[in-house]
Amino acid sequence: MAGLFPKWFNAFPTVSALAAVGGLTTVVAGFTYFATPKFWRVGYMPKQPGGGFNHQIHAGKLGMDCRYCHTKIEESAEANIPNVATCYGCHAEGRLALFTAPEGVLHREKTEFIRTAFAQDKSIEWRRVHKTPDYVRNFPHHVHVNAGVSCYSCHGQITTMETVYQAEPQSMGWCLDCHRGVKTEPEKYLVPKDKVTQLQWVQTEWLADSEKHKAEGRKLLETLKEAPPENCGACHY
């Protein structure tokens, strides 16, 4: 019947079909891009209590080994956060020469929270940066460290971070990239076991020129007790 709908309405089926296809594509593309840890988690940098812990000074400038504080990474699934006593071991009143240096006043102020906590027998409530979901059961740090996966692979260049932030997506797909990729390009994912905590060396000497280490990488892969698992039950059980 003439007149019920205006003439331009003839375009409606075409336009709505295009809109439906376009809308669906947008939703899927948006989901693929935005609904990811890569988008939401990378760069997460919570403010730490007190003066914080400057990894750039401790692990970078002073060259302290990761295991000085994270003592259990070679034997435990859990990468432990050090207790106050570990901090206090160096930061006790009068322990470090720095207290007498000109910049000592600032240093004294920034580390006061350690001595306060120690005196009151309280924990320092460090904020967690990296967290696997609850359906990933206990990511085993010791297995990875002993297999020759450097801290750098999952946590980034910690030695340059004044405040630690999440550098990698740590999504399941990202885990699988390594678990699958290591079988063909082990030199990109494994380092000699004594270099696991040498983050600067791993970045500049090993990974920067991984082509050269193909043979070494192959040998490292062969020393693994078992192939990196890809089955669901390896992590979800």
């Binding site: 989901f31 693929t32 797909g173 990202w174 699988l176």
Partner: peptide, 13 residues
């Protein structure tokens, strides 16, 4: 339920 459909995702599921 969206996992029923082949949608590229960060979990590579």
């Amino acid at each position: 339920a969206w996992m029923l459909f082949p949608i590229p995702n960060a979990n590579q599921i």
